[in-house]
């Protein structure tokens, strides 16, 4: 993700969670979080349970999110030299002292942990903790949806009803794993009317406007298959596809696994034979542990899990 993509991502996240953006440039956002976003991002469970129990008016936190550090800093330097120095993210001396005291004891204190009464600055770059957290936040509140395609405003007449087909849409993550790993994403859509299965379903959805509310003048087709059946169709489509893949990586890993096991057997078996009775059990345990570790490390496997899924009602009968 480059800084532009990050900027767009953050913009979308803040919009979707109803945060109020106080100020922004192509390189930063100054934002007051919505209660929804504050709950996920600031790590203040005690504060929020206090608010929930007492019904107090919540005071959410504000942040300076910088999406392009170099450009933001140089822009700020310029404005500072022209006389309007402002440093909302700068730490004052007490904070510095507190931070250095804490880091003496803990080695490192993340900037956000000390945010008291000032606007903490967070540099969002690929790999930064805060961006990872935004990723996780998007994931946890973007897992299950039920949506309707918004009808095209021009073509709809109040006297016609458009037929809508419900689809199961699911984004799957496939992990190919031994001591090494790679991943693929697969997006499937299965029509609940006909059982038809399409790939790259997410691309198709992204091109449409979706709404959580049932639009006027539409009617839903009857489900032809159950949800369980649709899941099976998606899974077996994926499985058929995966069978055609090249599994040399797995053969290599299995060979390594076998080799390692032989080495370990070769080491422990004579050791067990010559060991005294009372030591044998401990050696056996070590032997078994080591075998389990090697299996854990090298055994080739493929796992499929869902990133998110939903029911999508799309115009047309498919």
């Amino acid at each position: 993700m480059n800084s532009k993509q990050i900027h767009r991502f953050v913009q979308h996240y803040l919009d979707a969670t109803n945060c109020s953006i106080i100020e922004k440039s192509p390189y930063h956002f100054t934002v007051k979080l919505s209660p929804e976003a504050d709950r996920v991002l600031t790590g203040r469970p005690y504060y929020w349970s206090f608010v929930d129990r007492t019904g107090a008016e919540p005071e959410t936190m504000s942040y300076l999110f910088v999406t392009n550090k170099e450009k933001y800093d140089s822009a700020k330097e310029q404005s500072a030299s022209s006389g309007t120095a402002a440093n909302p993210g700068g730490m004052n001396r007490t904070d510095e002292a507190a931070k250095s005291a804490l880091s003496r004891s803990y080695g490192f204190v993340h900037g956000g942990a000390l945010a008291t009464g000032r606007m903490p600055r967070e540099d969002l770059y690929y790999g930064s903790k805060r961006l990872e957290q935004l990723f996780d936040a998007a994931q946890s509140s973007g897992s299950y949806v039920c949506l309707f395609q918004e009808p095209d405003a021009r073509s709809s007449t109040p006297f016609e009803s458009t037929a809508y087909t419900p689809w199961l849409g699911v984004n799957l993550r496939v992990e190919f794993q031994c001591d090494r790993k790679r991943e693929e994403l697969h997006s499937f859509g299965v029509s609940l009317a006909t059982g038809q299965c399409v790939e790259n379903f997410q691309d198709r959805l992204n091109a449409l406007k979706m709404t959580p509310r049932l639009p006027p003048n539409i009617h839903l087709t009857r489900n032809g298959i159950t949800l369980g059946k649709a899941v099976t169709i998606a899974e077996s489509t994926l499985e058929r596809k995966l069978r055609t893949y090249d599994y040399r990586w797995a053969e290599d890993a299995a060979a390594r696994l076998k080799e390692e096991l032989e080495v370990v057997n070769h080491y422990y078996e004579p050791l067990l034979e010559s060991a005294e009775e009372e030591r044998r059990e401990a050696i056996m345990e070590q032997f078994n542990n080591r075998k389990a570790e090697i299996d854990w490390q090298f055994r080739p496997r493929v796992t499929v899990s869902a990133i998110n899924c939903g029911i999508f009602h799309l115009a047309g009968i498919d």
């Binding site: 994931q139 984004n171 994403l185």
Partner: peptide, 8 residues
């Protein structure tokens, strides 16, 4: 829906 897309 937006968050769903962002998650992907």
């Amino acid at each position: 829906w937006t968050l769903y897309q962002l998650a992907i």
